[in-house]
Nucleic acid binder design. Structure first.
Ligand code: DTP
Ligand code: MG
Length: 441
DNA sequence: TGTGACGCAAC
RNA sequence: GUUGUUGCGUCACA
């Protein structure tokens, strides 16, 4: 619990040998790409060892200057672009050292309903907490999202908050320097940054939590049923009226006190069962299988995989199982298994079985297409089919038929020769199997 | 029990 | 080409 008191955060503690070694390991393990200076993570250890005290001395003397941040854009799920800010590996190393200490201390004061970017906390716990509120009759939800969250964090306010807990001015100054690091885009270095924590900065997540901790405190003070993961906060109320009242002051608080911007489009008040409610990839539904209802008759709402996330998985499988897919069959098999395992492990019990069956038969259809294309020549097709289905009638005739894949895979010989069982025995994974192993049976 | 390689998810 | 935090999974080594 938060019974422990906030410890002293000093530069010496950040630069302690053990802390630096731990930070070094983490940067290396990430294997992230280089910053503006071109130094790779694989070169960091050698660099650090060759100049043992140089870096720490610079930091202690206050002469250390972070390098500019390399700007890279990556696509977001909604089609927009996400501006990353990639620090040099040296800066990531120093930031790691800071972040380890910051996180350790702030963990002691962060509130229980905050889940994002925090150790020993995951999405499932956040969703479980949300479900508890729903089951206690709080069926109206305020879904809050902040506009360009990291990029709009106010430096002065953040520094002010950090100063309340960190008495060592050198630490504050060092963090401030990292925040002000300029952006380098297409070789051009811009002016010192005045707004935001870089998406890609090591200390950014904990800084983000430090800012929204103020909101957490306020919500707890007012006895709100809240659940926050980064800038995605859901607050549960008993009525639409209550939700509207709450949203009014929350908005005001976020914008005027925290200097952040509420995303007007994505922020909304809805009944929890609405498909527009998405929290960490889940939505909440009353429409579940009879078996589930029988098992939990006392419950009404259940978490389920949000439709957008189902589509996202299917889309990525479509690319993986494309007829003109790159790489060999074995590689595709392995990737499919890995992907389904990982995915199933995250969503586990929230996946509706009827959808599992739909998806699995869709996967098998695409696998059949893939193999049919792979075998190419009729003679090959004959051989491969016969190999799998000895007692086949008409295999010969069928193997020499046309090339219209989608139509063909629905025909009997392929369905039998490449039946579900045959596909499974040849190592083709299914979501059903992934879910079975994920739930431990 | 601990370490490191790969991967999945959330943001 | 893709950074960061966090959680989990699989495999591997001692
Ligand atoms: N891949 C990532 N790498 C680094 N930081 C990330 C990544 N994804 C999300 N974040 C961090 C930075 C974001 O500001 C914050 C909230 O994510 P998100 O709401 O998706 O974007 P956003 O708040 O920046 O833009 P938007 O205005 O679209 O909501 O989480
Ligand atoms: Mg946002």
């Amino acid at each position: 619990m938060s019974s422990e008191t906030f410890g002293e955060i000093t530069l010496e503690r950040i630069l302690a040998r053990g802390n630096l070694m731990q930070a070094l390991k983490k940067v290396e393990a990430n294997k992230g790409s280089c910053g503006v200076d071109g130094m790779e993570t694989s070169e960091l250890r050698a660099y650090f060892k060759s100049n043992p005290g140089k870096l720490t001395e610079q930091i202690l003397q206050g002469t250390f200057k972070p390098s500019p941040i390399r700007r890279v854009y990556i696509p977001k799920d909604n089609g927009e672009q996400r501006p990353l800010g990639i620090p040099t590996v040296i800066d990531r190393f120093v930031q790691q050292a800071i972040a380890l200490v910051l996180s350790e201390e702030y963990e002691k004061i962060f509130v229980d309903h905050s889940y994002g970017f925090r150790p020993n906390r995951d999405c499932r716990q956040a969703v479980r907490r949300a479900m508890e509120h729903i089951r206690e009759g709080y069926e109206w939800v305020i879904d809050i999202d902040l506009r360009k969250f990291f990029d709009t964090v106010n430096h002065d306010f953040l520094v002010q908050l950090l100063s309340r807990r960190i008495r060592d001015g050198r630490v504050i100054s060092l963090i401030h320097k990292f925040l002000r690091a300029p952006i380098s885009e297409e070789g051009k270095v811009g002016k010192a940054n005045r707004l935001g924590c870089p998406q890609g900065g090591v200390i950014s997540p904990v800084c983000a939590n430090v800012v929204l901790h103020e909101l957490d405190i306020k919500l707890r003070e007012k006895n709100m049923r809240a659940c926050r993961y980064a800038d995605d906060a859901v607050i549960f109320c008993k009525s639409r009226k209550a939700a509207e009242r709450a949203l009014k002051w929350i908005k005001k608080f976020i914008e005027s006190k925290l200097h952040l911007r509420v995303n007007e489009d994505k922020t909304k008040i809805l009944k929890v069962g609405s498909p527009d409610v998405q929290f960490l990839g889940f939505s909440f539904t009353t429409k579940v299988s009879k078996a589930k209802k029988m098992k939990f008759p006392q419950y009404r709402y259940f978490p389920t995989v949000h439709v957008k996330k189902r589509k996202k998985l299917k889309e990525s499988l479509r690319i993986l199982l494309d007829r003109r897919a790159r790489g060999g069959i074995d590689r595709i098999k392995r990737k499919l298994r890995l992907k389904l395992r990982g995915w199933a492990n995250y969503f586990k019990k929230a996946v509706p079985i009827s959808w599992v069956q739909d998806l699995d038969s869709w996967i098998r259809r695409r696998v059949r297409q893939l193999l049919w294309k792979q075998w190419k020549k009729p003679a090959n097709r004959y051989r491969e089919l016969k190999l799998r289905w000895n007692k086949a009638p008409n295999v010969e005739k069928f193997a020499y038929s046309s090339n219209r894949y989608w139509h063909i895979v629905t025909c009997r010989p392929l369905q039998t020769g490449l039946s579900n069982n045959v596909l499974e025995s040849e190592g083709w994974y299914s979501l059903e199997k992934a879910l079975r192993t994920a739930s431990g049976t």
